[in-house]
């Protein structure tokens, strides 16, 4: 029996047939939709490389059964820039050297976007580090990552104020 699954992925509505309910959101994104920006590190919830936004909230896509999220709205790293204009978090990662090999970076950026939406950390670097602890970086780019998140938060707040004015 094949199962039908509807998702909105980066703004595009998709209906997919699943021959097998075992597929995770991570494998669906990478293998079915060829959105390989979302990375598979551990496949066990232990590294954060697979972080996506599901209905606006960051989760580990490796521990999410795709069929369970029928109807969900998904944002991946491929969907955060506006054409050639980088998302402020992407720009801040470049400006602050928030990466070295780059493998963890899509997950870091999606996690940071989720963190900024949660709006729990304020400008306290200790709270930012704690809130980013679900994303491991084997290259140890943590100092740059924390600076990038804080900087993106400032630039998004400034842009928000300019927009409101």
């Amino acid at each position: 029996m094949s199962l039908s699954l509807s998702l909105t992925v980066n703004g595009i509505a998709r209906t997919l047939d699943l021959a097998d309910p075992r597929v995770t959101l991570l494998d669906l994104l990478r293998d079915r939709l060829h959105l390989t920006g979302t990375k598979k590190g551990c496949d066990r919830g232990q590294c954060g490389a697979c972080t996506i936004l599901l209905d606006g909230r960051r989760i580990n896509s490796c521990l999410a059964l795709a069929i369970s999220h029928d109807g969900a709205d998904i944002l991946t790293i491929e969907g955060v820039a506006q054409g050639d204009q980088l998302h402020p978090v992407q720009a801040a990662f470049i400006a602050h050297d928030g990466l070295q090999c780059g493998y963890c970076t899509p997950g870091q950026i999606m996690s940071a976007i989720g963190l900024l939406r949660e709006a729990q950390t304020g400008d306290d670097p200790e709270r930012v580090r704690e809130a980013m602890s679900g994303n491991l970086c084997r290259c140890g780019a943590y100092a740059g990552i924390t600076a990038a998140v804080l900087d993106a938060q400032r630039s998004m707040a400034d842009a928000g104020r300019a927009h409101a004015a």
Partner: peptide, 9 residues
């Protein structure tokens, strides 16, 4: 407990 991502799920 766990991480922000896991606590969301």
């Amino acid at each position: 407990g766990a991480s922000a991502q896991l606590r969301n799920a």
